[in-house]
Structure formats: C-alpha cells, structure tokens
Nucleic acid binder design. Structure first.
Length: 204
DNA sequence: CTTGGGATCTAG
DNA sequence: TAGATCCCAAGT
C-alpha cells in the first residue's frame, strides 16, 4: 500500500523513525526499483542551523520545503551527487527528511547498471550499491527531474511494508548526530539521524 | 557577474 | 586523503 499524504504530516522526528523499514520506490522506464529505508536524517527549519531552510531561507531550491507534506526535495551537492528528501509537517513549516541509505529490493540489476555500468560486481561493490544518499539516488535513477514531485505519483512513492516483513523486528533503531553538518553550530549534536544498528547498508 | 562553499563518492 | 565538478545563493 502506498503511503498517503497523512503519513508525512505531523511531527518530523516521529515520521523519520516511521520511515525506517518502509520501501522507497522509483519506477524508471517501466521498471520498478526499490529498497527498504535503513537510514534517515531529519532537517527542521527554520530553527535548525543544519537545514537548507534555516532562518526561513526561501529560494527556488528550498521553496518546496515550505509547501505541503509528501513532496520530493531533491538537490545537487558537491557538483555531482543528488540527495533525496521528503517534505514533512505542515505548510510553511520547512521540514524534510533526507533518505541516507536503503537495502536494495526490486530492480537490483538495473541499479547495478546505473551505479557501475555492469551487473557483474563484487560483494564490496554490492554493499556500496545504495549505502549513502548520493549512491541511492544514482541507483534509483533520482535526479533534479524529481525535484518537487509528489510522493503520490505512480512512479515515485513510499510503499508501506507489512508488519511481518518489517526490518524493525530484526534491528534496533539507533539515533545519533547527523553527518557532515560541521557548520551547524549548536545543531551539530542534535540526534536527528536514525538508522538500524548494524545494518550492512547503513552509510560509513 | 563573481565568488565561496557544500546534507558526497571514488580512487589511490 | 585529495580531487572531482557545478549548482546555488549572496554580494557587488
């Protein structure tokens, strides 16, 4: 079942934790690519110094964060990598959740091609398929084209995972400080990164 | 128009 | 551990 808009409304930290174990789906050329979410980070502007929407900074790039929940916020970083976020909370509250890692499920061969241009890869390469925000975007075929897209589309959505196949029953949820936000002063230590402890696809 | 910097990844 | 590589936003 596709996660409804209401899934993304409410308290961002709760939504972040609820996203763990759900399936992120992107359909490319009619082929479904997906993975279980195993690592996320919450960004809560305008008060969060790590957020692009800090202090209400509203630009073409960040505009979507100020809109309603359940939309994709995609941006390019370091000139070459894409990062995929989902907007949460109410209108004018510019929160978003960065998806940092997934465990591959559907379309694995297609993801291998997108990442390594071949399907014959080593174990180490397989572990690197989707274990980071830039890597998973590359694998899923997410680019700036998806910026601002609704998560209710037929080709981009979260699929709610039935309780019995949920990773949360096998892994403990850990919380810790977010990665690479050393400029964020007092927000550096906020424990807004959530992940499955010991899961092989968690970054780093 | 110019400039500085960034929620990363890979290779060596 | 450095280098790739370029959008984005702020300032002139």
């Amino acid at each position: 079942m596709k996660a409804p808009i209401s899934f993304y409304e409410g308290e961002t930290l709760h939504i972040a934790k609820r996203l763990l174990g759900q399936k992120l789906v992107h359909v490319v050329d009619g082929v479904k690519r997906s993975g279980y979410i195993v690592e996320v980070e919450a960004y809560k502007g305008p008060d969060d110094k790590a957020a692009h929407s800090y202090s209400g900074r509203r630009t073409n790039r960040t505009e979507v964060m100020f809109g309603e929940a359940g939309y994709a916020y995609v941006y390019l970083i370091y000139g070459m990598h894409h990062c995929f976020n989902i907007v949460t909370a109410e209108i004018d509250i510019p929160h978003a959740i960065l998806i940092r890692a997934i465990e591959p499920v559907d379309g694995i061969e297609e993801m291998k091609i997108s990442r390594f241009s071949k399907t014959d890869i080593t174990k180490a390469q397989y572990r690197n398929l989707t274990s980071g925000p830039g890597k998973l975007c590359r694998a899923l075929g997410i680019t700036l084209e998806q910026q601002g897209h609704s998560m209710q589309r037929d080709d981009l959505y979260i699929e709610l995972v039935p309780e019995e196949e949920h990773l949360s029953s096998s892994y403990a949820v850990a919380a810790g400080p977010r990665i690479n936000i050393d400029y964020a002063e007092e927000a550096i230590d906020y424990p807004w990164r959530f992940y499955y402890e010991g899961h092989p696809f968690v970054s780093k």
